[in-house]
Computed example of a mutant assay.
Amino acid sequence: MRKRKLKISDILFVVFILLLLIPQTRTPIQVAINKLKVAVWSPSVEDEEDQNEVAPFQYAVVDLQGNSQNISVGKGKVTFISYWATWCPPCIAELPGIQELYKDYGDKVNFILLTHEEPETVQRFIKKRGYELPIYFPQMQAPLILQENSIPTNFVISANGKILIKETGAADWNGTKVRELLDRLVSK
């Protein structure tokens, strides 16, 4: 019986697995992997026959300052909804792209980033990373069509309620495909 030679790739694989087992190194590795995925994974627009619609509604939310608001969804303005959390590596990986979109489209598109975490935790996270995003805490159950058990889950909804993009998992929200879609939607 021949003895198998140990390859450098075998050693690297073992080191990688060991690093994943150590809690302090797990999150940075997962974030790096997700950034790699985000760099190549662009959200896809639903085919017209597959597009669902959400009936217009008012999303009851509370902002980071504790103010209650009702934000229109599916009625008159394009909406970007993101379900996310500060402890979620894929969510963290896609936030820079969402921040860039918000900087360019924030006055033309309703951005609603929703989390169920403690406001203090979210405020620390946002401040540490320098984000300026409209983050809210839901005060109601979303319509069934917008409910998802996985985070991140993001939606782009047209001004008349068509769900044009539903993406679960990290994606490149600052990519050409999304920007072209938003440009078309806000120019109508």
Rank of each mutant, 00 (worst) to 15 (best):
Y131K: 01
T79H: 05
T25F: 15
K162N: 07
G76S: 11
L113V: 05
K177E: 02
G66L: 06
G106P: 09
P28V: 07
T176E: 08
P56C: 07
L12Q: 09
A159G: 04
I8Q: 12
P119C: 12
K3N: 13
Y136E: 00
V186M: 08
D63E: 03
T153E: 09
A32D: 00
Q69I: 00
T86G: 02
E48G: 01
P28Y: 10
E48C: 01
R184L: 09
V62A: 01
P96I: 01
E167Y: 04
Y83G: 00
I29V: 12
L6I: 15
E49P: 02
Q51F: 09
V45R: 08
T86W: 09
N149Y: 08
P143D: 00
V40C: 05
R129D: 08
L18N: 06
W84M: 11
P96A: 07
P28Q: 10
I71P: 01
H116T: 15
V31S: 11
P23W: 13
D172F: 01
I151W: 13
V61Y: 02
L182M: 10
S150Q: 13
E180G: 02
R2N: 14
A60I: 02
S44D: 07
K128G: 04
E100T: 15
G97P: 03
L164D: 10
F137H: 08
G76M: 10
F80W: 10
C91R: 08
N174S: 14
E167N: 08
Q147I: 14
F57K: 00
V45M: 08
I71E: 13
G130Y: 02
K128A: 15
W84E: 09
V109M: 12
T79E: 01
W84G: 06
N67A: 11
P89M: 14
Y59A: 15
I126H: 00
Q139F: 02
V31N: 05
D107G: 03
S42G: 05
K5M: 13
S44P: 02
E53C: 02
E100G: 11
E100S: 15
P152G: 03
K3Q: 13
E94C: 08
H116Q: 11
F111Y: 10
P134R: 02
S150T: 15
P143F: 01
D47V: 03
W173V: 07
D47N: 13
S158E: 06
F137I: 07
E180L: 14
C88H: 09
V186R: 07
E132W: 03
K162A: 04
I92Q: 11
P119F: 10
D104L: 11
Q30G: 00
K35N: 09
A60Q: 13
K3W: 14
I17K: 04
N70V: 00
K103L: 11
D107N: 14
L144Q: 15
N174Y: 12
L182P: 09
P56S: 06
Y102C: 03
L101M: 12
Y83L: 12
F125S: 10
K108E: 10
N154C: 09
D107Q: 15
Q69N: 02
L181S: 13
S187Y: 00
I135E: 03
D50Q: 11
V178Y: 05
G130E: 02
E132F: 13
P143Y: 04
Q141T: 14
A39T: 06
W173C: 04
V14G: 06
V40M: 12
F13M: 14
S9P: 02
I17D: 11
P96Q: 03
F57Q: 04
L20A: 07
F125M: 10
L20C: 12
